[in-house]
Design a protein around this nucleic acid. Structure first.
Lengths: 133, 133
DNA sequence: GTAACTGCAAAATATTTGCATCCTT
DNA sequence: AAGGATGCAAATATTTTGCAGTTAC
């Protein structure tokens, strides 16, 4: 799974900002916040481009965002194991702030009120990761 | 469960802004965003006070916030059924944007990677509510 | 009376929009 | 060549901070 692969697969032009963001996310084990990406990527791109690129990549399905309870947003490459899950779940370490995609084949039997219909579920597990535990 | 009850129970002074926000949330079946609260509450309070009051109420445990995948934040009174749940789950209607606390006694068996420890889980179920379905 | 809540002004931060320029295909 | 991506400037929105005045207890 290379950066070019991903871009081509989603019919996206191969541009500087996209490649940098994708390679950054591919290399990282954890999901990254905008600030974390900017820290490692030199000031090649300004914030506007960042926002637009993240949105483009997300709309195309190349990456997905994870919204934490503290309102911060992190991004991760959408890997095969992430796809087709009714429940998309992530782990958030309270100590190092790391966010990781969880691979789960969970079958949730959630009772909803009468007349409610469920489309999909997102879940964040808070706790300590192996390194911090 | 009156507003004064709640404030007293959490050792909070009974002030105008707190009472308005709490009564607003108590009356509403759905969780409310800051913008939704402001719509029904006259301009008695400015934004700064709003933020600070919400934080105070949240820190005290009188209300809790729900962060949705689109980054919006809603608030709801912490009722008895909300408490002591390992998994706090909410329903978000994609059509009317309503957010409701779900009462569930779900026992989740989530498999975590080696060495990871789980503290608690938050979950948002997306779908259609009874009125919109 | 006192600690803490509120309001105002303003700073800091985050996000969006319009437009001109540049680049990928 | 053309459509789309980028950068800049600036508008808009969101959140935080300091300080002075006010209020609940």
């Amino acid at each position: 799974m290379t950066v070019e692969n991903i871009l081509h697969k989603h019919n996206l032009k191969s541009t500087g900002c996209r490649k940098l963001i994708l390679s950054e996310l591919l290399e990282s084990k954890a999901a990254l916040a905008e600030s974390e990406m900017k820290a490692s990527i030199p000031e090649l791109f300004n914030r506007v481009t960042f926002y637009r690129t993240l949105k483009t990549l997300e709309d195309a399905g190349a990456i997905h965002k994870i919204v934490l309870q503290d309102n911060t947003t992190k991004y991760a490459v959408t890997r095969q194991k992430c796809q087709g899950q009714d429940i998309h779940s992530h782990f958030h370490c309270s100590r190092c702030d790391g966010v990781f995609c969880l691979q789960n084949n969970l079958q949730l039997n959630i009772e909803l009120p009468q007349g409610f219909v469920r489309h999909h579920v997102s879940m964040v597990v808070e706790g300590l990761c192996a390194a911090c535990n």
